[in-house]
Design a protein around this nucleic acid. Structure first.
Lengths: 210, 210
DNA sequence: TTGTCGGCCGATCGCCGACAA
DNA sequence: TTGTCGGCGATCGGCCGACAA
Protein backbone atom coordinates (compact mmCIF):
# COMPACT_ATOMS: atom_id res chain seq x y z
CA UNK A 1 0.00 0.00 0.00
CA UNK A 2 2.98 2.34 0.57
CA UNK A 3 3.52 2.73 -3.18
CA UNK A 4 -0.06 3.83 -3.77
CA UNK A 5 -0.10 6.16 -0.77
CA UNK A 6 3.09 7.83 -1.92
CA UNK A 7 1.56 8.47 -5.34
CA UNK A 8 -1.61 9.75 -3.71
CA UNK A 9 0.48 12.31 -1.84
CA UNK A 10 2.49 13.57 -4.80
CA UNK A 11 -0.66 13.82 -6.88
CA UNK A 12 -1.73 12.27 -10.16
CA UNK A 13 0.51 14.40 -12.40
CA UNK A 14 3.79 12.85 -11.27
CA UNK A 15 5.27 9.85 -13.02
CA UNK A 16 8.59 8.17 -12.35
CA UNK A 17 11.11 6.22 -14.40
CA UNK A 18 11.06 2.49 -13.85
CA UNK A 19 13.99 0.63 -12.37
CA UNK A 20 16.11 -0.63 -15.24
CA UNK A 21 14.96 1.97 -17.76
CA UNK A 22 17.24 4.49 -19.47
CA UNK A 23 17.14 8.22 -18.70
CA UNK A 24 19.13 11.32 -19.60
CA UNK A 25 20.80 12.98 -16.62
CA UNK A 26 21.58 16.72 -16.76
CA UNK A 27 24.34 17.36 -14.19
CA UNK A 28 24.29 21.14 -14.54
CA UNK A 29 20.67 21.43 -13.46
CA UNK A 30 21.32 19.09 -10.57
CA UNK A 31 24.39 21.04 -9.39
CA UNK A 32 22.47 24.31 -9.61
CA UNK A 33 19.88 22.94 -7.22
CA UNK A 34 22.42 21.56 -4.76
CA UNK A 35 24.48 24.76 -4.73
CA UNK A 36 21.46 27.00 -4.21
CA UNK A 37 20.12 24.90 -1.34
CA UNK A 38 23.55 24.49 0.24
CA UNK A 39 24.99 26.93 2.73
CA UNK A 40 28.30 26.87 0.85
CA UNK A 41 28.79 30.10 -1.08
CA UNK A 42 30.03 28.99 -4.51
CA UNK A 43 31.00 31.92 -6.64
CA UNK A 44 31.86 29.67 -9.54
CA UNK A 45 29.80 26.58 -10.06
CA UNK A 46 31.92 23.45 -10.36
CA UNK A 47 31.39 21.43 -13.53
CA UNK A 48 33.80 18.55 -12.85
CA UNK A 49 34.47 18.30 -16.59
CA UNK A 50 31.17 16.48 -17.11
CA UNK A 51 29.16 16.19 -20.29
CA UNK A 52 25.98 18.32 -20.28
CA UNK A 53 23.92 15.17 -20.91
CA UNK A 54 24.70 11.75 -19.53
CA UNK A 55 22.80 8.62 -20.52
CA UNK A 56 22.15 6.48 -17.47
CA UNK A 57 20.50 3.27 -16.42
CA UNK A 58 18.09 3.64 -13.48
CA UNK A 59 19.57 1.34 -10.84
CA UNK A 60 17.11 2.10 -8.06
CA UNK A 61 14.06 4.25 -7.32
CA UNK A 62 13.19 4.92 -3.68
CA UNK A 63 9.97 6.64 -2.68
CA UNK A 64 10.67 8.64 0.47
CA UNK A 65 8.99 11.16 2.76
CA UNK A 66 10.43 13.83 5.02
CA UNK A 67 9.93 12.83 8.64
CA UNK A 68 9.29 16.37 9.81
CA UNK A 69 7.11 18.11 7.25
CA UNK A 70 5.78 15.06 5.35
CA UNK A 71 7.10 16.29 2.01
CA UNK A 72 7.31 13.41 -0.43
CA UNK A 73 10.31 12.98 -2.70
CA UNK A 74 12.27 10.40 -4.65
CA UNK A 75 15.83 9.16 -4.55
CA UNK A 76 16.81 7.89 -8.01
CA UNK A 77 20.10 6.05 -8.32
CA UNK A 78 21.67 6.30 -11.79
CA UNK A 79 24.52 4.40 -13.41
CA UNK A 80 26.12 6.10 -16.42
CA UNK A 81 26.10 4.17 -19.69
CA UNK A 82 27.45 6.64 -22.24
CA UNK A 83 27.28 4.14 -25.11
CA UNK A 84 23.49 4.49 -25.08
CA UNK A 85 23.93 8.08 -26.25
CA UNK A 86 24.64 6.94 -29.80
CA UNK A 87 20.95 6.74 -30.54
CA UNK A 88 18.96 9.93 -30.88
CA UNK A 89 16.39 10.43 -28.16
CA UNK A 90 13.85 13.03 -27.20
CA UNK A 91 14.92 15.73 -24.73
CA UNK A 92 12.53 15.30 -21.85
CA UNK A 93 14.27 17.25 -19.09
CA UNK A 94 16.20 16.74 -15.89
CA UNK A 95 16.04 13.20 -14.52
CA UNK A 96 13.02 12.49 -16.64
CA UNK A 97 12.47 9.27 -18.47
CA UNK A 98 13.31 9.11 -22.13
CA UNK A 99 10.32 7.17 -23.22
CA UNK A 100 12.75 5.08 -25.14
CA UNK A 101 11.52 1.77 -23.81
CA UNK A 102 8.03 0.39 -23.58
CA UNK A 103 6.75 0.37 -20.03
CA UNK A 104 9.52 2.61 -18.82
CA UNK A 105 7.06 4.84 -17.02
CA UNK A 106 5.04 3.92 -14.00
CA UNK A 107 1.42 4.99 -14.05
CA UNK A 108 -0.10 4.98 -10.55
CA UNK A 109 -3.64 5.69 -11.69
CA UNK A 110 -4.84 2.18 -12.41
CA UNK A 111 -3.28 0.79 -9.25
CA UNK A 112 -5.37 2.81 -6.80
CA UNK A 113 -9.02 1.78 -7.10
CA UNK A 114 -10.04 2.62 -3.54
CA UNK A 115 -8.55 6.09 -3.18
CA UNK A 116 -10.23 9.47 -2.78
CA UNK A 117 -9.11 12.94 -1.89
CA UNK A 118 -11.01 15.47 0.12
CA UNK A 119 -10.15 19.14 0.18
CA UNK A 120 -10.55 20.25 3.78
CA UNK A 121 -13.29 22.76 4.61
CA UNK A 122 -13.35 25.33 7.40
CA UNK A 123 -15.46 22.97 9.46
CA UNK A 124 -12.99 20.12 8.94
CA UNK A 125 -10.01 22.10 10.21
CA UNK A 126 -11.86 23.99 12.96
CA UNK A 127 -11.56 22.80 16.55
CA UNK A 128 -15.31 23.14 16.86
CA UNK A 129 -16.07 19.73 15.37
CA UNK A 130 -14.81 16.72 13.47
CA UNK A 131 -14.46 15.72 9.85
CA UNK A 132 -17.32 15.25 7.36
CA UNK A 133 -16.54 12.06 5.49
CA UNK A 134 -17.61 12.05 1.82
CA UNK A 135 -19.84 9.04 1.33
CA UNK A 136 -17.60 7.60 -1.37
CA UNK A 137 -14.72 7.51 1.12
CA UNK A 138 -16.87 5.83 3.77
CA UNK A 139 -18.26 3.26 1.36
CA UNK A 140 -15.13 2.46 -0.64
CA UNK A 141 -12.37 2.84 1.95
CA UNK A 142 -13.82 2.20 5.40
CA UNK A 143 -15.03 -1.13 6.80
CA UNK A 144 -18.87 -1.36 6.65
CA UNK A 145 -20.86 -0.32 9.71
CA UNK A 146 -23.78 -2.14 11.33
CA UNK A 147 -26.59 0.02 9.98
CA UNK A 148 -29.23 -1.76 12.07
CA UNK A 149 -28.01 0.30 15.04
CA UNK A 150 -29.30 3.76 15.89
CA UNK A 151 -25.88 5.41 15.58
CA UNK A 152 -23.41 2.85 14.28
CA UNK A 153 -19.75 3.59 14.97
CA UNK A 154 -16.33 1.96 14.93
CA UNK A 155 -12.68 2.77 15.57
CA UNK A 156 -10.54 3.21 12.49
CA UNK A 157 -6.77 2.73 12.51
CA UNK A 158 -4.90 4.27 9.57
CA UNK A 159 -1.21 4.48 8.75
CA UNK A 160 0.56 7.47 7.27
CA UNK A 161 3.67 7.53 5.08
CA UNK A 162 5.91 6.90 8.06
CA UNK A 163 3.95 3.81 9.13
CA UNK A 164 2.68 5.80 12.11
CA UNK A 165 -0.79 4.73 13.23
CA UNK A 166 -3.64 7.19 13.78
CA UNK A 167 -6.91 6.23 15.45
CA UNK A 168 -10.24 7.81 14.54
CA UNK A 169 -13.78 7.31 15.75
CA UNK A 170 -15.99 6.80 12.70
CA UNK A 171 -19.69 7.38 13.34
CA UNK A 172 -22.82 7.52 11.14
CA UNK A 173 -25.31 9.91 12.68
CA UNK A 174 -27.25 13.17 12.35
CA UNK A 175 -30.37 14.19 10.50
CA UNK A 176 -29.98 13.60 7.63
CA UNK A 177 -27.54 10.76 8.25
CA UNK A 178 -23.88 11.35 7.43
CA UNK A 179 -20.46 9.82 8.07
CA UNK A 180 -18.15 11.67 10.46
CA UNK A 181 -14.71 11.27 12.00
CA UNK A 182 -14.84 12.64 15.54
CA UNK A 183 -12.43 11.63 18.32
CA UNK A 184 -8.86 11.61 17.07
CA UNK A 185 -9.40 13.85 14.08
CA UNK A 186 -8.46 17.17 15.71
CA UNK A 187 -5.12 15.95 17.02
CA UNK A 188 -4.38 14.61 13.54
CA UNK A 189 -5.12 18.06 12.11
CA UNK A 190 -2.81 19.80 14.55
CA UNK A 191 0.05 17.28 14.35
CA UNK A 192 0.02 17.35 10.55
CA UNK A 193 -0.52 21.12 10.46
CA UNK A 194 -3.52 20.72 8.18
CA UNK A 195 -5.25 23.89 7.05
CA UNK A 196 -8.27 24.99 5.03
CA UNK A 197 -7.77 23.96 1.41
CA UNK A 198 -5.30 21.14 2.04
CA UNK A 199 -6.13 17.88 0.30
CA UNK A 200 -6.14 14.65 2.28
CA UNK A 201 -6.06 11.27 0.49
CA UNK A 202 -7.82 8.22 1.91
CA UNK A 203 -6.70 4.85 0.65
CA UNK A 204 -7.62 1.23 1.35
CA UNK A 205 -5.24 -1.59 0.55
CA UNK A 206 -6.43 -4.92 -0.82
CA UNK A 207 -6.09 -6.38 2.66
CA UNK A 208 -8.30 -3.63 4.08
CA UNK A 209 -5.40 -1.64 5.52
CA UNK A 210 -6.05 2.07 5.71
CA UNK B 1 22.25 43.88 22.75
CA UNK B 2 22.01 41.42 19.83
CA UNK B 3 25.68 40.49 20.13
CA UNK B 4 25.36 39.61 23.81
CA UNK B 5 22.12 37.69 23.29
CA UNK B 6 23.66 35.65 20.49
CA UNK B 7 26.56 34.70 22.75
CA UNK B 8 24.16 33.86 25.56
CA UNK B 9 22.41 31.41 23.21
CA UNK B 10 25.53 29.64 21.95
CA UNK B 11 26.88 29.36 25.48
CA UNK B 12 30.04 30.56 27.16
CA UNK B 13 32.40 28.03 25.54
CA UNK B 14 32.18 29.46 22.04
CA UNK B 15 34.62 32.08 20.84
CA UNK B 16 34.87 33.61 17.38
CA UNK B 17 37.66 35.08 15.27
CA UNK B 18 37.63 38.84 15.01
CA UNK B 19 37.06 40.64 11.75
CA UNK B 20 40.44 41.38 10.24
CA UNK B 21 42.30 38.58 12.01
CA UNK B 22 44.08 35.71 10.28
CA UNK B 23 42.80 32.12 10.37
CA UNK B 24 43.66 28.79 8.79
CA UNK B 25 40.89 27.38 6.61
CA UNK B 26 40.69 23.61 6.06
CA UNK B 27 38.69 23.04 2.86
CA UNK B 28 38.52 19.26 3.20
CA UNK B 29 36.70 19.42 6.52
CA UNK B 30 34.32 22.01 5.13
CA UNK B 31 33.57 19.95 2.01
CA UNK B 32 32.97 16.85 4.13
CA UNK B 33 30.29 18.70 6.07
CA UNK B 34 28.62 20.11 2.97
CA UNK B 35 28.60 16.75 1.18
CA UNK B 36 27.22 14.86 4.18
CA UNK B 37 24.42 17.37 4.75
CA UNK B 38 23.63 17.59 1.04
CA UNK B 39 21.24 15.25 -0.71
CA UNK B 40 23.76 14.78 -3.51
CA UNK B 41 25.36 11.34 -3.30
CA UNK B 42 29.06 12.00 -3.93
CA UNK B 43 31.01 8.78 -4.20
CA UNK B 44 34.26 10.66 -4.60
CA UNK B 45 34.69 13.89 -2.76
CA UNK B 46 35.79 16.77 -4.96
CA UNK B 47 39.00 18.49 -3.89
CA UNK B 48 39.15 21.21 -6.59
CA UNK B 49 42.94 21.00 -6.45
CA UNK B 50 43.01 23.02 -3.23
CA UNK B 51 45.72 23.10 -0.60
CA UNK B 52 44.79 21.26 2.62
CA UNK B 53 45.40 24.46 4.61
CA UNK B 54 44.66 27.96 3.35
CA UNK B 55 45.65 31.09 5.26
CA UNK B 56 42.85 33.61 5.15
CA UNK B 57 41.94 37.04 6.37
CA UNK B 58 38.55 37.22 8.12
CA UNK B 59 36.61 39.70 6.00
CA UNK B 60 33.31 39.49 7.85
CA UNK B 61 31.66 37.70 10.77
CA UNK B 62 27.87 37.54 10.87
CA UNK B 63 26.00 36.22 13.89
CA UNK B 64 22.81 34.58 12.61
CA UNK B 65 19.89 32.52 13.88
CA UNK B 66 17.65 30.05 12.10
CA UNK B 67 14.18 31.53 11.74
CA UNK B 68 12.42 28.22 12.28
CA UNK B 69 14.20 26.35 15.05
CA UNK B 70 16.18 29.24 16.60
CA UNK B 71 19.52 27.49 16.12
CA UNK B 72 22.32 30.03 16.30
CA UNK B 73 25.20 29.92 13.85
CA UNK B 74 27.87 32.09 12.24
CA UNK B 75 28.67 33.06 8.68
CA UNK B 76 32.39 33.80 8.42
CA UNK B 77 33.62 35.33 5.17
CA UNK B 78 37.26 34.53 4.39
CA UNK B 79 39.67 35.98 1.84
CA UNK B 80 42.69 33.80 1.01
CA UNK B 81 46.10 35.31 1.63
CA UNK B 82 48.54 32.45 0.97
CA UNK B 83 51.61 34.58 1.62
CA UNK B 84 50.77 34.53 5.33
CA UNK B 85 51.49 30.80 5.34
CA UNK B 86 55.23 31.41 5.37
CA UNK B 87 55.21 31.80 9.13
CA UNK B 88 54.68 28.73 11.31
CA UNK B 89 51.44 28.76 13.25
CA UNK B 90 49.62 26.52 15.66
CA UNK B 91 47.10 24.04 14.21
CA UNK B 92 43.84 25.03 15.88
CA UNK B 93 41.29 23.30 13.65
CA UNK B 94 38.66 24.10 11.06
CA UNK B 95 37.85 27.79 10.76
CA UNK B 96 39.37 28.45 14.13
CA UNK B 97 41.48 31.46 14.94
CA UNK B 98 45.21 31.10 14.94
CA UNK B 99 45.93 33.10 18.03
CA UNK B 100 48.54 34.77 15.92
CA UNK B 101 47.46 38.29 16.68
CA UNK B 102 46.71 39.96 19.96
CA UNK B 103 43.00 40.54 20.44
CA UNK B 104 42.09 38.25 17.57
CA UNK B 105 39.59 36.40 19.70
CA UNK B 106 36.35 37.81 21.02
CA UNK B 107 35.53 37.00 24.62
CA UNK B 108 31.83 37.55 25.33
CA UNK B 109 32.09 36.95 29.07
CA UNK B 110 32.98 40.40 30.26
CA UNK B 111 30.42 42.07 28.00
CA UNK B 112 27.32 40.55 29.62
CA UNK B 113 27.01 41.78 33.19
CA UNK B 114 23.21 41.51 33.46
CA UNK B 115 22.67 38.03 32.06
CA UNK B 116 21.43 34.88 33.77
CA UNK B 117 20.31 31.45 32.62
CA UNK B 118 17.61 29.34 34.14
CA UNK B 119 17.20 25.67 33.43
CA UNK B 120 13.48 25.08 33.08
CA UNK B 121 11.73 22.90 35.66
CA UNK B 122 8.65 20.72 35.20
CA UNK B 123 6.54 23.49 36.71
CA UNK B 124 7.98 26.05 34.32
CA UNK B 125 7.11 24.05 31.20
CA UNK B 126 3.78 22.66 32.46
CA UNK B 127 0.55 24.28 31.32
CA UNK B 128 -0.62 24.27 34.92
CA UNK B 129 1.14 27.50 35.86
CA UNK B 130 3.70 30.12 34.94
CA UNK B 131 7.42 30.62 35.39
CA UNK B 132 9.28 30.97 38.68
CA UNK B 133 11.73 33.84 38.22
CA UNK B 134 15.04 33.43 40.07
CA UNK B 135 15.47 36.50 42.23
CA UNK B 136 18.78 37.40 40.59
CA UNK B 137 16.99 37.61 37.23
CA UNK B 138 14.23 39.77 38.67
CA UNK B 139 16.63 42.10 40.45
CA UNK B 140 19.34 42.40 37.81
CA UNK B 141 17.38 42.18 34.56
CA UNK B 142 13.81 43.37 35.18
CA UNK B 143 12.69 46.93 35.95
CA UNK B 144 12.05 47.39 39.68
CA UNK B 145 8.52 46.91 41.01
CA UNK B 146 6.60 49.12 43.42
CA UNK B 147 7.01 47.01 46.55
CA UNK B 148 4.68 49.22 48.59
CA UNK B 149 1.77 47.52 46.86
CA UNK B 150 0.18 44.30 48.08
CA UNK B 151 0.96 42.38 44.85
CA UNK B 152 3.10 44.56 42.61
CA UNK B 153 3.12 43.67 38.92
CA UNK B 154 4.11 45.05 35.53
CA UNK B 155 4.15 44.08 31.87
CA UNK B 156 7.53 43.08 30.47
CA UNK B 157 8.39 43.28 26.76
CA UNK B 158 11.39 41.22 25.66
CA UNK B 159 12.94 40.66 22.23
CA UNK B 160 14.30 37.37 20.96
CA UNK B 161 17.08 36.81 18.40
CA UNK B 162 14.74 37.65 15.55
CA UNK B 163 13.75 40.99 17.10
CA UNK B 164 10.32 39.51 17.77
CA UNK B 165 8.66 40.97 20.86
CA UNK B 166 7.17 38.81 23.62
CA UNK B 167 5.00 40.22 26.39
CA UNK B 168 4.93 38.77 29.91
CA UNK B 169 3.09 39.68 33.07
CA UNK B 170 5.64 39.94 35.88
CA UNK B 171 4.15 39.71 39.40
CA UNK B 172 5.58 39.50 42.92
CA UNK B 173 3.20 37.55 45.13
CA UNK B 174 2.65 34.40 47.20
CA UNK B 175 3.62 33.38 50.71
CA UNK B 176 6.57 33.54 50.92
CA UNK B 177 6.89 36.25 48.28
CA UNK B 178 8.42 35.29 44.93
CA UNK B 179 8.73 36.65 41.37
CA UNK B 180 6.64 34.98 38.69
CA UNK B 181 5.94 35.32 34.98
CA UNK B 182 2.28 34.45 34.37
CA UNK B 183 0.27 35.67 31.38
CA UNK B 184 2.25 35.26 28.16
CA UNK B 185 4.67 32.67 29.44
CA UNK B 186 2.83 29.53 28.29
CA UNK B 187 2.46 30.68 24.68
CA UNK B 188 6.17 31.50 24.68
CA UNK B 189 6.90 27.95 25.87
CA UNK B 190 4.79 26.39 23.14
CA UNK B 191 5.95 28.64 20.30
CA UNK B 192 9.60 28.08 21.19
CA UNK B 193 9.05 24.38 21.87
CA UNK B 194 10.66 24.69 25.28
CA UNK B 195 10.94 21.53 27.35
CA UNK B 196 12.09 20.38 30.77
CA UNK B 197 15.83 20.89 31.03
CA UNK B 198 16.16 23.59 28.38
CA UNK B 199 18.13 26.65 29.44
CA UNK B 200 16.68 30.11 28.89
CA UNK B 201 18.90 33.21 29.05
CA UNK B 202 17.60 36.53 30.34
CA UNK B 203 19.54 39.61 29.38
CA UNK B 204 19.21 43.34 29.99
CA UNK B 205 20.88 45.86 27.71
CA UNK B 206 22.44 49.05 29.05
CA UNK B 207 19.35 50.94 27.88
CA UNK B 208 17.12 48.56 29.85
CA UNK B 209 16.04 46.58 26.80
CA UNK B 210 15.21 42.97 27.54
C1' DT C 1 14.57 30.82 47.92
C1' DT C 2 11.70 28.13 44.77
C1' DG C 3 9.48 23.56 43.02
C1' DT C 4 5.14 21.19 43.26
C1' DC C 5 0.51 20.79 44.57
C1' DG C 6 -4.79 21.36 45.43
C1' DG C 7 -8.37 24.60 44.76
C1' DC C 8 -10.94 27.18 41.79
C1' DC C 9 -12.89 29.55 37.83
C1' DG C 10 -13.32 30.66 33.04
C1' DA C 11 -12.13 29.49 28.20
C1' DT C 12 -11.89 26.26 24.90
C1' DC C 13 -12.67 21.66 23.00
C1' DG C 14 -15.49 18.72 20.95
C1' DC C 15 -20.02 15.91 20.32
C1' DC C 16 -24.85 16.51 19.02
C1' DG C 17 -28.86 17.59 15.72
C1' DA C 18 -30.93 21.58 13.22
C1' DC C 19 -30.95 23.67 9.29
C1' DA C 20 -29.91 25.01 4.44
C1' DA C 21 -27.07 25.15 0.36
C1' DT D 1 -25.17 14.98 0.17
C1' DT D 2 -22.55 17.94 3.30
C1' DG D 3 -20.99 22.75 5.24
C1' DT D 4 -22.00 25.70 9.05
C1' DC D 5 -24.19 26.84 13.19
C1' DG D 6 -26.20 27.08 18.20
C1' DG D 7 -26.60 24.14 22.13
C1' DC D 8 -24.32 21.89 25.92
C1' DG D 9 -21.14 19.14 28.84
C1' DA D 10 -16.38 17.87 29.77
C1' DT D 11 -11.86 18.98 29.75
C1' DC D 12 -8.08 21.91 30.10
C1' DG D 13 -5.58 26.32 30.93
C1' DG D 14 -4.00 29.24 34.06
C1' DC D 15 -3.96 32.26 38.52
C1' DC D 16 -3.83 31.80 43.54
C1' DG D 17 -1.56 30.63 48.20
C1' DA D 18 -0.18 26.45 50.96
C1' DC D 19 3.38 23.82 51.89
C1' DA D 20 8.05 21.81 51.98
C1' DA D 21 12.56 20.94 50.08
Amino acid sequence: IYFELWHACVGPLTSLPKKGSVVVYFPQGHIEQVVSSSSMPCLEMPIFGLQPQIFCRVVNVQLLANKENNEVYTQVTLFPEPELGERNVEDTGHEDETGEEEGGEVSPRMLTPHMFYKTLTASDTSTHGGFSVPCRVAEDCFPPLDYTQERPSQELVAKDLHEVEWKFRHIYRGQPRRHLLTTGWSIFVSKKNLALGNAVPFLRGEDGEL
